[in-house]
Design a protein around this nucleic acid. Structure first.
Lengths: 345, 345
DNA sequence: ACCAATTTCCAAAGCGCTTTGGATACCTTC
DNA sequence: GAAGGTATCCAAAGCGCTTTGGAAATTGGT
């Protein structure tokens, strides 16, 4: 049914060596034979057996992605988008993505150990890191190549791709300060997430520059779609005018959606009585520009991050000696209609 | 670093054959040696190399799952949950899950062919089938074992797991008819999906039994979270009382959420002026019982479906001669507080 | 026209497992 | 105690690829 290397080489009157080399782009084979081989391979639909190649090279051609432990709508949506990016780029580069999951009882460790020992994957992609993530020490101990999507506080240098959360929220808060806002609220993610702390830091830094106390600043309990935005917004916006924030910065579009609904109900026009900025992960079908009015946002595509993470990891696999693949992406602040000067009261 | 079979066998003064058999539970090895072998394997952390085993057995120990072509919040959430189920059960059964994706330009076919020829996967799991899904003929041509999550209209028998959508919506509509409702609306999924057609059929069948015209019945354009529910509900519930539906059946909790909000705004109490039933996929953190009031729902866990699909496919792989793994799950109708007799007007 | 350098190709040795086809030892049974 | 089972174990042959260490063929310089 499916032809193998030996058959193909016999058919071409060449050795397996030559055919293999021709196909894999080695220099020691003439262009002439190479094209002859490629044509024949194409014609007969030859594809090297993944299993055999894996055994011979000791590489599995597979990257592992671990499901986040946490589960909620936002996390799931973000993860799916991230995963999509990973799979897309991986398949471009000839790699497979397999999924791993840590189940109830199991220790995180056993799962990773298992993956490593049976050599199922060449590297792992870890997402949603905690402040001090034990997995990175584990990976190092296991000598398993890996890359983190996000950052952690672990001491030693490690490979990661992250976005400049601090800078993004600094920019956002600064914009509001520049516009004249004095009472600015932050709806953040959970404090245990590193990105939430980064965002808070950036936010505070901007306020500090303007000598504005970060009084209204709040750390939220969850990223729940809308619900959390609704709750916090209700609590804050119902306050008497002198205490009411004139601007809010949200960690997700979902929160912004909730805030925006509450504002509308209270008759506060977004961009006038209330300025609103949110972070936009560029999820599919949820766009800051589709808000009413279009939302000023710090934006960074989570799907692109998935692609890049795979790229970095694969580069690292191909050349383990090269410098650690660590990268911080700047985040754009796109100003739209949801931000304006504070109301004159 | 990692010990292999030869080393382990030398260490035990046994042949590789015996060690392999002991570990894989073959009968022709004494319980005595078996436990000795297992202990040693455990002690030294021996794990057979996946690549070598794959090459030797011709089985990859891997199942492929294909990303749905469509993308929106609901699809993504459902897919993630389904995937989670797949990964969970697969890992229990010693299988890996790798993801495949059909990209923009690529034909569906090329993607599947590639997977088959390089023998990366032993079987594929296809989800969100179309009415007449070309993939099932393709799978058959390629002789790739597969299973469908959902059903299609293709003529020849094929392996699938589906829930009884028709029966579920029949039950839901019948309940409403029994309660005395006469104007019942259906908010369905897109017509191109097989499950939507099944649901419509069940819905119509119940109404027909009661001689009720399915006038208010509507096929919706999208499954968008809430938005669609809001739109349709607004259109229907703003009508004059004699034309207004007294009950609605939704295809998803998200739609129901939208309907419910509109009803609340119009001062219609769910369970009194408006009865509401929705299909509940048992997604994480979105529960029919958490609605206000708790929602009567037809429910079936998409995560469990993922698990079962993997089970069926693996059984099929282990015994290809056995009967086609095709199964229809009954769907429970759980009556809660959102349904009651129609208002007396 | 000859030697060295370069191209181009190949035979064969793994990679680490499973599995076939015995061989050997240990019991039964009469 | 010999014949026939049965329970244990093993040597060796793959699985289909990559890669090492040469050999053969071609080229170039003089």
């Amino acid at each position: 049914m499916v032809m193998n290397l030996r058959e193909l080489s016999e058919l071409l009157n060449l050795s397996q060596t030559t055919v293999s080399r021709a196909l894999n782009g080695f220099p020691e084979v003439s262009e002439d034979t190479r094209s002859r081989v490629k044509a024949a391979a194409d014609l007969h639909g030859y594809r090297p057996s993944a299993a055999a190649r894996r055994l011979a090279t000791g590489q599995s051609g597979t990257l592992g992605v671990v499901f986040p432990r946490e589960r909620n709508m936002l996390v799931d949506l973000i993860f799916t988008e991230f995963l999509r990016g990973c799979v897309e780029r991986a398949s471009d580069l000839g790699y497979d993505i397999t999924l791993a999951m840590v189940r109830g009882q199991q220790t995180e460790e056993s799962v990773y150990r298992r993956a490593v020992r049976s050599a199922r994957v060449d590297g792992m992609i870890l997402s949603s890191p905690l402040i001090d993530d034990p997995r990175i020490d584990l990976m190092r101990d296991l000598k398993m190549p890996y890359i983190l999507h996000g950052r952690t506080r672990n001491a030693a240098p490690y490979p990661y791709l992250d976005i400049d959360n601090e800078g993004a929220f600094y920019k956002a808060a600064k914009l509001l300060c520049d516009l004249g806002h004095r009472r600015i609220a932050l709806l953040n993610g959970e404090d245990k997430n590193n990105f939430a702390q980064d965002r808070e830091r950036g936010f505070r830094a901007a306020l500090a520059e303007y000598g504005i106390p970060a009084l209204l600043h709040m750390l939220s309990g969850s990223l729940m779609v809308e619900q959390h935005g609704v709750e916090v917004a209700t609590r804050l916006l119902m306050r008497p005018v002198p205490e009411r924030p004139t601007a809010m910065v949200c960690s997700s579009l979902s929160q912004a959606m909730g805030v925006s609904k509450v504002a509308r109900q209270l008759g506060l026009r977004i961009g006038h009585e209330l300025s609103l900025i949110a972070h936009d992960d560029r999820l599919h079908e949820i766009h800051a520009e589709a808000f009413e009015p279009p939302l000023t946002a710090t934006q960074s595509s989570i799907g692109e991050a998935g692609k890049k993470v795979v790229e970095l990891l694969i580069n690292h696999l191909r050349d383990p000696e090269a410098r650690l693949p660590s990268e911080v992406w700047p985040v754009d602040l796109v100003v739209r209609a949801s931000t304006g000067p504070p109301p004159k009261t």
